[in-house]
Design a protein around this nucleic acid. Structure first.
Lengths: 293, 293
DNA sequence: CTCCTCCTCGATACGGTGTCTCTCGGAACC
DNA sequence: GGTTCCGAGAGACACCGTATCGAGGAGGAG
């Protein structure tokens, strides 16, 4: 994470401030001095200073340079001067991914849609992975949490269906979730909290409770992969095949060649993911009920 | 699937042979003639002829060109002279993905590991997606199917655990499955068949049966995404964190900031995916049992 | 008002990706 | 032995994510 030279330099300076080596009011080394000391470009050193300023560690004093700020108040550090347009950027990226899929989500294309030069994105976002994580958080944050009252089963069902609907609206989501390592997204944490609260009525053991939360989430995510495939298969072919095997002749052929007797006995299968999701969710919650008893 | 010009041409010629338009011993159009007729590069036309020859439809006669072969015996067609090195290539690719992850799986790197120039891969494999699909098929085909006898629950459990173990051995698999559109892989079809056979003892309605199959498969796949993240997180950090929040300080911090009361009540959570998988599988099969009754 | 310092910005560059194309060397027949 | 043909592989192409660095503007000091 701290692989960028600018971040390495910023971290080092931050350490000196924390250690008391640099006191409030002290001047930090100038951009030029930093550049020479660390053998990096001046702009790299400048970005290190910017990072510190954005973090509230320093302030810039005209004609003097960067100066260690007064011990940052908790409030200051809690809201690190988030550039308001970052949210706009994320919204644009979501729209692009919705329209053209995750594969089309390149920094250059997002920048074009955003009306900014490519490298301007890197001032709002740490990199592509950061952008994707913010997109994930944003789509989950957009839908309101269902009320936290009533029987646990109804609450869990509502929560699962909420996630399912988000996946339906944003087909890229399942792939993004499986590509990016699980992140501490506020919206996802709120979701987890709501699920855990509902699960408190199912099992007392907190570990078992969390296990069930992971199970439910994984189930929805697993189904969402199918949903994503379904949605952009429909987008590709223009028609959404009702029947599984109709979707593509190669599949039907392979089925004929490699499919065993049980598969053949199924015959024409009306492929309807919503029905399958309902079935699976009901089965899983039935299982939860049995655990509770 | 038949998007490549060479395959389109091969398919057309194959159709003419099947129709009797071209009889055994007849000369096929020369490479040049095909190229001119279809307005493609000579090498493309040549590849079409190669495809036919590899499929056993034609043989090459010196100084004459391609000639329609005698009606291929069933045996011949069953084993379409599969270039034996394709399997070697897939094995090399699997080893590379196991060792360095899906991100490192580039055609150039596979070619280097395979000891061949990059473009040589394209004679064994249609492209990268084709390679990945073959990898998926290969890893599922490698493990033997459990015996198809005994109570349905034990059979389903064995099948699910088998898939789970495959995911554990090949962490790239979950991501590959979610990236590639579902393919008609022989090994996966055999798996589906076995699951459906076991499910025949659960529900009579074939549609509901297939629904349950999709549910079970999706559950395993969803859990496998977590498994993949876990495995390569462990590979990155070197240590495998027993406790969920220990894994990375940023997560702990986010938990403190955004985590709600229910999340906090969980406290230190021993993160053990095998236990979670067991719990989830048991819950799901409990649900299946209730449907059966 | 002028000058000078500093910083911000974005064009460019780099090392990668998957795949197509085209040229060249060599083998096989007249 | 000359010519024809084919296949192999090097390079080209259009992208990707992002580090770097030169040019430009903003803003305070004198």
């Amino acid at each position: 994470m701290d692989d960028l030279p600018s971040e390495r330099i910023a971290a080092e300076l931050r350490a000196r401030i924390v250690d008391g080596d640099l006191l409030p009011g002290d001047r930090l080394p100038s951009t030029r001095a930093l550049a020479a000391e660390h053998r990096v470009a001046a702009s790299t050193a400048a970005r290190a200073l910017t990072l510190l300023r954005d973090g509230g560690w320093t302030r810039t004093v005209s004609r003097v340079g960067s100066v260690v700020a007064s011990p940052p108040s908790p409030v200051r550090r809690r809201a690190p001067a988030a550039d308001p347009t970052t949210d706009d950027l994320v919204a644009v990226a979501i729209a692009l991914a919705d329209a053209e899929g995750l594969a089309a989500l390149s920094m250059r294309r997002v920048a074009a849609a955003f009306g900014a030069p490519t490298m301007a994105l890197y001032r709002l976002v740490r990199g592509k992975e950061d952008l994707v994580v913010r997109m994930i958080d944003a789509v989950f944050a957009a839908a309101a949490l269902p009320p936290a009252t009533g029987p646990w089963r109804a609450r869990l069902e509502a929560l699962a269906r909420r996630q399912w609907r988000v996946h339906g609206r944003h087909p890229w989501l399942a792939r993004a979730l499986s590509l990016s390592r699980p992140q501490a997204s506020p919206a996802l944490l709120r979701l987890a909290d709501a699920e855990l609260a509902a699960l408190e009525d199912v099992v007392d053991d907190p570990v078992a409770r969390f296990d069930l939360h992971v199970v439910l989430t994984s189930f929805v995510r697993g189904m969402a992969v199918d949903l994503a495939a379904e949605i952009d298969a429909a987008a590709d072919t223009g028609l959404d095949a009702d029947t599984w095997a109709d979707r593509d002749p190669a599949l039907r052929e392979a089925l004929r060649r490699h499919g065993g007797p049980a598969l053949r006995r199924v015959g024409d299968y009306p492929y309807d993911l919503q029905r399958i999701f309902d079935t699976g969710l009901a089965a899983l919650l039935d299982g939860f009920e049995r655990i509770g008893r």
